[in-house]
Design a binder for these strands. Structure first.
Lengths: 175, 175
DNA sequence: AAAGATTGAAATCTCAATCTTG
DNA sequence: CAAGATTGAGATTTCAATCTTT
Protein backbone atom coordinates (compact mmCIF):
# COMPACT_ATOMS: atom_id res chain seq x y z
CA UNK A 1 0.00 0.00 0.00
CA UNK A 2 1.11 3.51 -0.76
CA UNK A 3 2.24 5.39 2.29
CA UNK A 4 2.46 9.15 2.39
CA UNK A 5 5.78 9.68 4.14
CA UNK A 6 6.20 13.34 3.21
CA UNK A 7 3.29 15.51 4.27
CA UNK A 8 3.02 18.91 2.57
CA UNK A 9 4.90 21.61 4.43
CA UNK A 10 2.99 24.58 5.80
CA UNK A 11 4.35 26.67 2.94
CA UNK A 12 3.20 24.14 0.35
CA UNK A 13 -0.20 23.96 2.02
CA UNK A 14 -0.56 27.73 1.88
CA UNK A 15 0.42 27.68 -1.78
CA UNK A 16 -2.22 25.05 -2.51
CA UNK A 17 -4.86 26.97 -0.53
CA UNK A 18 -4.39 29.98 -2.81
CA UNK A 19 -4.79 27.81 -5.91
CA UNK A 20 -7.86 25.84 -4.75
CA UNK A 21 -10.59 27.89 -3.13
CA UNK A 22 -12.42 24.95 -1.53
CA UNK A 23 -9.32 23.76 0.31
CA UNK A 24 -9.69 23.92 4.09
CA UNK A 25 -6.04 23.68 5.24
CA UNK A 26 -7.01 22.66 8.76
CA UNK A 27 -9.21 19.79 7.55
CA UNK A 28 -6.65 18.57 5.01
CA UNK A 29 -3.80 18.65 7.50
CA UNK A 30 -5.87 16.68 10.01
CA UNK A 31 -6.88 14.16 7.38
CA UNK A 32 -3.30 13.70 6.18
CA UNK A 33 -2.03 13.22 9.74
CA UNK A 34 -4.65 10.53 10.25
CA UNK A 35 -3.88 8.79 6.96
CA UNK A 36 -0.16 8.91 7.58
CA UNK A 37 -0.53 7.26 10.98
CA UNK A 38 -2.77 4.60 9.42
CA UNK A 39 -0.25 3.86 6.70
CA UNK A 40 2.64 3.64 9.14
CA UNK A 41 0.68 1.19 11.27
CA UNK A 42 -0.33 -0.91 8.27
CA UNK A 43 3.25 -1.12 7.05
CA UNK A 44 4.56 -1.99 10.49
CA UNK A 45 1.83 -4.58 10.96
CA UNK A 46 2.74 -6.18 7.67
CA UNK A 47 6.37 -6.60 8.76
CA UNK A 48 5.15 -7.93 12.08
CA UNK A 49 2.97 -10.57 10.40
CA UNK A 50 5.72 -11.49 7.97
CA UNK A 51 8.06 -12.18 10.86
CA UNK A 52 5.46 -14.52 12.32
CA UNK A 53 5.25 -16.29 8.97
CA UNK A 54 1.79 -15.08 8.10
CA UNK A 55 0.10 -12.13 6.42
CA UNK A 56 -2.46 -9.53 7.41
CA UNK A 57 -5.23 -11.29 5.51
CA UNK A 58 -4.45 -14.72 6.89
CA UNK A 59 -4.13 -13.38 10.42
CA UNK A 60 -7.45 -11.55 10.18
CA UNK A 61 -9.22 -14.76 9.20
CA UNK A 62 -7.53 -16.79 11.94
CA UNK A 63 -8.23 -14.15 14.58
CA UNK A 64 -11.87 -14.05 13.56
CA UNK A 65 -12.19 -17.83 13.86
CA UNK A 66 -10.44 -17.62 17.23
CA UNK A 67 -13.02 -15.32 18.80
CA UNK A 68 -15.23 -18.30 19.51
CA UNK A 69 -13.17 -21.27 18.37
CA UNK A 70 -16.03 -23.76 18.76
CA UNK A 71 -18.22 -21.80 16.39
CA UNK A 72 -17.81 -22.67 12.71
CA UNK A 73 -18.32 -19.96 10.08
CA UNK A 74 -19.08 -20.17 6.39
CA UNK A 75 -16.74 -18.53 3.85
CA UNK A 76 -19.51 -16.03 3.10
CA UNK A 77 -19.78 -15.02 6.76
CA UNK A 78 -16.01 -14.67 6.94
CA UNK A 79 -15.96 -12.55 3.80
CA UNK A 80 -18.63 -10.29 5.25
CA UNK A 81 -16.90 -9.92 8.62
CA UNK A 82 -13.54 -9.24 7.01
CA UNK A 83 -14.94 -6.85 4.42
CA UNK A 84 -13.50 -8.68 1.42
CA UNK A 85 -15.07 -10.60 -1.43
CA UNK A 86 -15.81 -14.30 -1.27
CA UNK A 87 -13.17 -14.81 -3.94
CA UNK A 88 -10.51 -13.40 -1.64
CA UNK A 89 -11.64 -15.65 1.20
CA UNK A 90 -11.49 -18.71 -1.05
CA UNK A 91 -7.86 -17.95 -1.78
CA UNK A 92 -6.99 -17.26 1.85
CA UNK A 93 -8.70 -20.46 3.02
CA UNK A 94 -6.86 -22.45 0.35
CA UNK A 95 -3.55 -21.33 1.81
CA UNK A 96 -4.60 -21.75 5.43
CA UNK A 97 -5.99 -25.22 4.75
CA UNK A 98 -2.85 -26.26 2.88
CA UNK A 99 -0.88 -25.24 5.99
CA UNK A 100 -3.27 -27.21 8.19
CA UNK A 101 -4.40 -24.16 10.18
CA UNK A 102 -8.09 -24.37 9.30
CA UNK A 103 -10.46 -27.08 8.13
CA UNK A 104 -13.38 -26.93 5.74
CA UNK A 105 -16.27 -29.40 5.87
CA UNK A 106 -19.48 -29.41 3.86
CA UNK A 107 -22.52 -28.07 5.68
CA UNK A 108 -25.02 -30.79 6.63
CA UNK A 109 -28.20 -28.67 6.61
CA UNK A 110 -27.40 -26.66 3.47
CA UNK A 111 -24.96 -28.55 1.31
CA UNK A 112 -23.99 -25.40 -0.60
CA UNK A 113 -22.19 -23.97 2.42
CA UNK A 114 -18.89 -24.88 4.01
CA UNK A 115 -18.11 -24.93 7.73
CA UNK A 116 -14.71 -23.43 8.50
CA UNK A 117 -12.97 -24.04 11.84
CA UNK A 118 -9.55 -23.55 13.35
CA UNK A 119 -7.64 -26.81 13.61
CA UNK A 120 -5.62 -27.68 16.72
CA UNK A 121 -2.56 -26.59 14.76
CA UNK A 122 -4.25 -23.30 13.95
CA UNK A 123 -4.99 -22.67 17.63
CA UNK A 124 -1.42 -23.53 18.59
CA UNK A 125 -0.18 -21.10 15.95
CA UNK A 126 -2.33 -18.28 17.34
CA UNK A 127 -1.47 -19.11 20.94
CA UNK A 128 2.17 -18.84 19.88
CA UNK A 129 1.90 -15.41 18.32
CA UNK A 130 -1.01 -13.65 20.06
CA UNK A 131 0.74 -12.91 23.38
CA UNK A 132 3.50 -11.07 21.49
CA UNK A 133 0.89 -9.44 19.27
CA UNK A 134 -1.17 -8.18 22.21
CA UNK A 135 1.91 -6.90 24.02
CA UNK A 136 2.92 -4.92 20.92
CA UNK A 137 -0.52 -3.37 20.56
CA UNK A 138 -0.45 -2.39 24.23
CA UNK A 139 2.94 -0.76 23.69
CA UNK A 140 1.70 1.05 20.59
CA UNK A 141 -1.31 2.41 22.45
CA UNK A 142 0.76 2.98 25.59
CA UNK A 143 1.75 6.45 24.40
CA UNK A 144 -1.88 7.55 24.76
CA UNK A 145 -3.31 8.39 28.18
CA UNK A 146 -6.78 7.29 29.23
CA UNK A 147 -8.38 10.49 27.96
CA UNK A 148 -6.71 10.26 24.60
CA UNK A 149 -7.84 6.68 24.18
CA UNK A 150 -11.41 7.62 24.92
CA UNK A 151 -11.28 10.54 22.52
CA UNK A 152 -9.63 8.43 19.83
CA UNK A 153 -12.36 5.81 20.04
CA UNK A 154 -15.01 8.50 19.67
CA UNK A 155 -13.20 10.24 16.81
CA UNK A 156 -12.49 6.97 14.99
CA UNK A 157 -16.17 6.14 15.20
CA UNK A 158 -17.13 9.49 13.73
CA UNK A 159 -14.65 9.11 10.88
CA UNK A 160 -15.80 5.58 10.08
CA UNK A 161 -19.42 6.71 10.13
CA UNK A 162 -18.62 9.63 7.84
CA UNK A 163 -16.41 7.84 5.33
CA UNK A 164 -19.34 7.86 2.91
CA UNK A 165 -18.53 11.56 2.41
CA UNK A 166 -15.88 10.34 -0.03
CA UNK A 167 -18.30 8.25 -2.08
CA UNK A 168 -21.61 10.10 -1.88
CA UNK A 169 -22.97 11.67 -5.07
CA UNK A 170 -21.00 14.84 -5.77
CA UNK A 171 -22.20 17.97 -4.05
CA UNK A 172 -22.32 21.27 -5.94
CA UNK A 173 -19.60 23.74 -5.13
CA UNK A 174 -20.72 26.03 -2.32
CA UNK A 175 -20.87 29.73 -3.12
CA UNK B 1 -7.08 -4.34 1.45
CA UNK B 2 -8.70 -6.33 4.23
CA UNK B 3 -11.13 -4.33 6.25
CA UNK B 4 -12.30 -5.39 9.68
CA UNK B 5 -16.02 -4.70 9.50
CA UNK B 6 -17.00 -6.73 12.56
CA UNK B 7 -15.18 -5.69 15.70
CA UNK B 8 -15.22 -8.18 18.57
CA UNK B 9 -18.19 -7.71 20.87
CA UNK B 10 -17.56 -6.85 24.51
CA UNK B 11 -18.42 -10.43 25.42
CA UNK B 12 -15.93 -11.82 22.87
CA UNK B 13 -13.30 -9.40 24.14
CA UNK B 14 -13.83 -10.55 27.71
CA UNK B 15 -13.55 -14.16 26.59
CA UNK B 16 -10.27 -13.43 24.83
CA UNK B 17 -8.95 -11.53 27.85
CA UNK B 18 -9.36 -14.62 30.01
CA UNK B 19 -7.51 -16.77 27.47
CA UNK B 20 -4.59 -14.38 26.87
CA UNK B 21 -3.09 -12.83 29.98
CA UNK B 22 -1.21 -10.04 28.16
CA UNK B 23 -4.34 -8.74 26.48
CA UNK B 24 -5.24 -5.19 27.54
CA UNK B 25 -8.87 -4.94 26.41
CA UNK B 26 -8.85 -1.15 26.50
CA UNK B 27 -5.77 -0.90 24.28
CA UNK B 28 -7.02 -3.52 21.82
CA UNK B 29 -10.44 -1.91 21.52
CA UNK B 30 -8.86 1.48 20.86
CA UNK B 31 -6.50 0.02 18.30
CA UNK B 32 -9.30 -1.82 16.50
CA UNK B 33 -11.47 1.30 16.39
CA UNK B 34 -8.57 3.20 14.85
CA UNK B 35 -7.83 0.48 12.30
CA UNK B 36 -11.47 0.11 11.37
CA UNK B 37 -11.79 3.84 10.67
CA UNK B 38 -8.60 3.70 8.58
CA UNK B 39 -9.89 0.80 6.53
CA UNK B 40 -13.25 2.43 5.93
CA UNK B 41 -11.53 5.58 4.72
CA UNK B 42 -9.16 3.66 2.46
CA UNK B 43 -12.02 1.75 0.88
CA UNK B 44 -14.08 4.87 0.38
CA UNK B 45 -11.09 6.72 -1.06
CA UNK B 46 -10.51 3.92 -3.52
CA UNK B 47 -14.08 4.18 -4.83
CA UNK B 48 -13.69 7.93 -4.98
CA UNK B 49 -10.52 7.68 -7.08
CA UNK B 50 -12.05 5.03 -9.33
CA UNK B 51 -14.96 7.35 -10.09
CA UNK B 52 -12.46 10.02 -11.11
CA UNK B 53 -10.78 7.49 -13.41
CA UNK B 54 -7.62 7.16 -11.38
CA UNK B 55 -6.26 5.14 -8.47
CA UNK B 56 -4.84 5.91 -5.06
CA UNK B 57 -1.27 5.35 -6.23
CA UNK B 58 -1.61 7.44 -9.34
CA UNK B 59 -3.34 10.24 -7.44
CA UNK B 60 -0.66 10.26 -4.77
CA UNK B 61 2.06 10.73 -7.39
CA UNK B 62 0.12 13.44 -9.21
CA UNK B 63 -0.70 15.29 -5.99
CA UNK B 64 2.94 15.19 -4.97
CA UNK B 65 4.04 16.65 -8.30
CA UNK B 66 1.32 19.29 -7.94
CA UNK B 67 2.63 20.68 -4.66
CA UNK B 68 5.15 22.75 -6.58
CA UNK B 69 4.35 22.08 -10.23
CA UNK B 70 7.44 23.87 -11.54
CA UNK B 71 9.73 21.63 -9.53
CA UNK B 72 10.72 18.37 -11.25
CA UNK B 73 11.36 15.29 -9.13
CA UNK B 74 13.29 12.11 -9.87
CA UNK B 75 11.55 8.72 -9.63
CA UNK B 76 13.72 7.95 -6.60
CA UNK B 77 12.57 11.10 -4.81
CA UNK B 78 8.96 10.26 -5.64
CA UNK B 79 9.41 6.71 -4.35
CA UNK B 80 10.84 8.02 -1.11
CA UNK B 81 8.10 10.62 -0.62
CA UNK B 82 5.37 8.12 -1.40
CA UNK B 83 6.88 5.35 0.70
CA UNK B 84 6.97 2.77 -2.08
CA UNK B 85 9.81 1.10 -3.95
CA UNK B 86 11.34 2.50 -7.11
CA UNK B 87 9.88 -0.46 -8.98
CA UNK B 88 6.36 0.62 -8.03
CA UNK B 89 7.04 4.17 -9.17
CA UNK B 90 8.35 2.96 -12.51
CA UNK B 91 5.07 1.17 -13.11
CA UNK B 92 2.94 4.12 -11.98
CA UNK B 93 4.91 6.56 -14.13
CA UNK B 94 4.55 4.23 -17.13
CA UNK B 95 0.79 4.44 -16.83
CA UNK B 96 0.69 8.17 -16.11
CA UNK B 97 3.01 8.91 -19.03
CA UNK B 98 0.98 6.72 -21.39
CA UNK B 99 -2.06 8.83 -20.40
CA UNK B 100 -0.09 12.01 -21.01
CA UNK B 101 -0.42 13.23 -17.40
CA UNK B 102 3.29 13.36 -16.60
CA UNK B 103 6.49 13.68 -18.59
CA UNK B 104 9.91 12.13 -18.04
CA UNK B 105 13.11 13.66 -19.38
CA UNK B 106 16.71 12.62 -18.80
CA UNK B 107 18.57 14.65 -16.21
CA UNK B 108 21.21 16.93 -17.71
CA UNK B 109 23.60 17.06 -14.75
CA UNK B 110 23.40 13.38 -13.82
CA UNK B 111 22.33 11.34 -16.81
CA UNK B 112 21.28 8.40 -14.61
CA UNK B 113 18.32 10.33 -13.23
CA UNK B 114 15.00 11.27 -14.79
CA UNK B 115 13.12 14.53 -14.29
CA UNK B 116 9.40 13.97 -13.80
CA UNK B 117 6.89 16.81 -14.22
CA UNK B 118 3.15 17.23 -14.53
CA UNK B 119 2.11 17.97 -18.10
CA UNK B 120 -0.50 20.61 -18.89
CA UNK B 121 -2.97 17.75 -19.26
CA UNK B 122 -1.95 16.43 -15.84
CA UNK B 123 -2.58 19.82 -14.25
CA UNK B 124 -5.94 20.11 -15.97
CA UNK B 125 -6.84 16.66 -14.67
CA UNK B 126 -5.99 17.64 -11.09
CA UNK B 127 -7.72 21.00 -11.37
CA UNK B 128 -10.77 19.06 -12.50
CA UNK B 129 -10.87 16.68 -9.56
CA UNK B 130 -9.17 18.47 -6.64
CA UNK B 131 -12.01 20.89 -5.82
CA UNK B 132 -14.38 17.95 -5.37
CA UNK B 133 -11.68 16.06 -3.52
CA UNK B 134 -11.03 18.88 -1.07
CA UNK B 135 -14.73 19.46 -0.47
CA UNK B 136 -15.16 15.77 0.38
CA UNK B 137 -12.26 15.82 2.82
CA UNK B 138 -13.72 18.91 4.48
CA UNK B 139 -17.04 17.12 4.82
CA UNK B 140 -15.37 14.01 6.23
CA UNK B 141 -13.52 16.07 8.83
CA UNK B 142 -16.55 18.30 9.38
CA UNK B 143 -17.92 15.96 12.02
CA UNK B 144 -14.96 16.84 14.26
CA UNK B 145 -14.93 20.08 16.20
CA UNK B 146 -11.80 22.22 16.49
CA UNK B 147 -10.70 20.50 19.71
CA UNK B 148 -11.14 17.05 18.25
CA UNK B 149 -9.10 17.97 15.19
CA UNK B 150 -6.30 19.26 17.36
CA UNK B 151 -6.36 16.14 19.51
CA UNK B 152 -6.51 13.88 16.48
CA UNK B 153 -3.44 15.48 14.96
CA UNK B 154 -1.54 15.01 18.20
CA UNK B 155 -2.71 11.42 18.65
CA UNK B 156 -2.01 10.51 15.03
CA UNK B 157 1.51 11.84 15.44
CA UNK B 158 2.04 9.73 18.54
CA UNK B 159 0.76 6.60 16.82
CA UNK B 160 2.91 7.16 13.73
CA UNK B 161 5.95 7.77 15.93
CA UNK B 162 5.23 4.60 17.90
CA UNK B 163 4.42 2.26 15.02
CA UNK B 164 7.87 0.74 15.44
CA UNK B 165 6.39 -1.00 18.51
CA UNK B 166 5.03 -3.55 16.02
CA UNK B 167 8.40 -4.25 14.43
CA UNK B 168 10.93 -3.81 17.23
CA UNK B 169 12.80 -6.87 18.45
CA UNK B 170 10.46 -8.94 20.61
CA UNK B 171 10.23 -7.98 24.26
CA UNK B 172 10.14 -10.68 26.94
CA UNK B 173 6.80 -11.35 28.54
CA UNK B 174 6.39 -9.18 31.65
CA UNK B 175 5.92 -11.02 34.94
C1' DA C 1 31.89 -0.57 -7.05
C1' DA C 2 27.64 2.54 -6.11
C1' DA C 3 23.31 4.71 -7.45
C1' DG C 4 19.20 5.43 -10.60
C1' DA C 5 15.92 3.13 -13.30
C1' DT C 6 13.82 -0.85 -15.24
C1' DT C 7 12.28 -5.71 -15.85
C1' DG C 8 10.17 -10.20 -14.60
C1' DA C 9 8.33 -13.29 -11.17
C1' DA C 10 5.49 -13.69 -7.10
C1' DA C 11 1.89 -12.15 -3.58
C1' DT C 12 -2.57 -10.05 -2.59
C1' DC C 13 -7.12 -8.59 -3.76
C1' DT C 14 -11.18 -7.62 -7.04
C1' DC C 15 -14.42 -8.46 -10.74
C1' DA C 16 -16.97 -11.30 -13.85
C1' DA C 17 -18.11 -15.82 -15.09
C1' DT C 18 -19.07 -20.63 -13.78
C1' DC C 19 -20.38 -24.65 -11.09
C1' DT C 20 -23.20 -26.71 -7.47
C1' DT C 21 -27.08 -26.87 -4.52
C1' DG C 22 -31.59 -25.15 -2.98
C1' DC D 1 -33.81 -18.75 -10.98
C1' DA D 2 -31.25 -17.54 -5.83
C1' DA D 3 -27.21 -18.19 -3.21
C1' DG D 4 -22.65 -20.27 -1.83
C1' DA D 5 -18.23 -21.29 -3.48
C1' DT D 6 -14.71 -21.39 -6.88
C1' DT D 7 -11.95 -20.14 -11.02
C1' DG D 8 -9.38 -17.14 -14.21
C1' DA D 9 -8.02 -12.61 -15.73
C1' DG D 10 -6.51 -8.03 -14.34
C1' DA D 11 -4.65 -4.38 -11.04
C1' DT D 12 -1.34 -3.08 -7.53
C1' DT D 13 2.84 -3.67 -5.06
C1' DT D 14 7.29 -5.97 -3.70
C1' DC D 15 11.71 -8.42 -4.29
C1' DA D 16 15.71 -9.78 -6.77
C1' DA D 17 18.25 -9.26 -10.82
C1' DT D 18 19.87 -6.34 -14.66
C1' DC D 19 21.24 -2.31 -17.31
C1' DT D 20 23.13 2.38 -17.53
C1' DT D 21 25.75 6.07 -15.74
C1' DT D 22 28.88 7.98 -12.26
Amino acid sequence: MLILRDLPSDAEMRGLATRYRDLDPEAIATFLAFIRASCEVFHAAESHFTRHGTSCGRFTVLALLNREPELARSPSQIASSCGVTRATITGLLDGLEADGLIGRVRGTADRRTLQVRLTAKGRRFLDGMLPDHFRRLSTLMGSLDADERTVLRRIAGKIADNSHALTDPPTPRPR
